[in-house]
């Protein structure tokens, strides 16, 4: 894949209501293969809303989001869900693991939904990902039997389960201590380093995390702030 993995063209999101609220206003941006992109901005600026639009969790009021060359505005909800399942992985501030399932089952969940691999391969792959994140001994633990850092690593493992093109992370280190934060950043970086053509988009207000990104987009009042505070030119690994 040589073109952008994700592209936003004039994306606007207005929340309906008695007083319509503009969350995102005419954002143009793209995510290139191999890129570690940080979206920053003050609280309430719309950075998470932009991530949800890029990740097809939300539908723009106007504009277009293009994922791996597929225009998405005409897709119905199920088709968007399918595209999300095949190409994107999500990590949220809260781990959002299913509480009744073990770490292994949580990681297998998107794989089973996609059905790309046979059952044995899915299990094998889930074990491999968990082991690579240092959770080999925790595969059968339920979320309530793990620490916050472990849960977040399981959530990352789940995001990586279907071998997505882009991992979208919304404040992934927001609830973690310093050691766990460093570990999570390392994992996300490794993902891009390990395979060509992948990208990571992180929403954060943590300047330390943002500083480690290849490029940073600052969002203020739903718009991309100009000038870009830390432009990184031609990220083409």
């Amino acid at each position: 894949m040589t073109g952008p993995l994700i592209e936003a063209r004039g994306v606007t999101r207005i929340l309906d209501g008695e007083v319509p609220t503009t969350l995102i206003a005419g954002v143009d941006m793209s995510v290139a293969p191999g890129e570690f992109l940080a979206i920053t901005g003050p609280s309430g600026s719309g950075k998470s809303s932009l991530l949800y639009l890029l990740g097809l969790l939300d539908v723009p009021t106007s504009g277009e989001v293009i994922i791996a060359g597929h225009a998405t505005s005409a897709l119905d909800e199920d088709a968007r869900a399918r595209l999300r399942l095949e190409t994107l992985g999500f990590v949220f501030q809260f781990h959002f693991l299913l509480p009744e399932f073990s770490a292994l089952e949580n990681v297998m969940l998107p794989m089973r939904a996609l059905g790309r691999w046979p059952a044995e391969r899915m299990q094998e792959r889930a074990h491999e990902i968990l082991a690579s994140l240092g959770l080999a001994g925790h595969t059968h633990k339920r979320p309530d039997q793990m620490s916050g850092g472990q849960r977040q690593r399981v959530a990352i493992a789940r995001a990586l389960a279907n071998d997505p093109l882009v991992v979208l992370a919304d404040e992934p280190t927001g609830n973690l201590d310093t050691a766990s934060t460093a570990q999570v950043i390392g994992i996300l970086r490794d993902m891009i380093a390990g395979e060509a053509g992948k990208a990571v988009v992180v929403v954060t207000h943590d300047l330390g995390l943002a500083a480690q990104a290849d490029r940073r987009i600052n969002i203020i009042d739903g718009r991309v702030a100009v000038p870009d505070p830390s432009p990184v030119s031609d990220v083409t690994r």
Binding site: G55, D78, L83, R84, F90, F96, L98, L109, A113
Partner: peptide, 16 residues
């Protein structure tokens, strides 16, 4: 509700 939201965010179709 939260689990449903997360399953949908993972890519589970409404039908599922």
């Amino acid at each position: 509700t939260r689990d449903i939201a997360i399953m949908k965010s993972l890519g589970f179709a409404s039908r599922v």
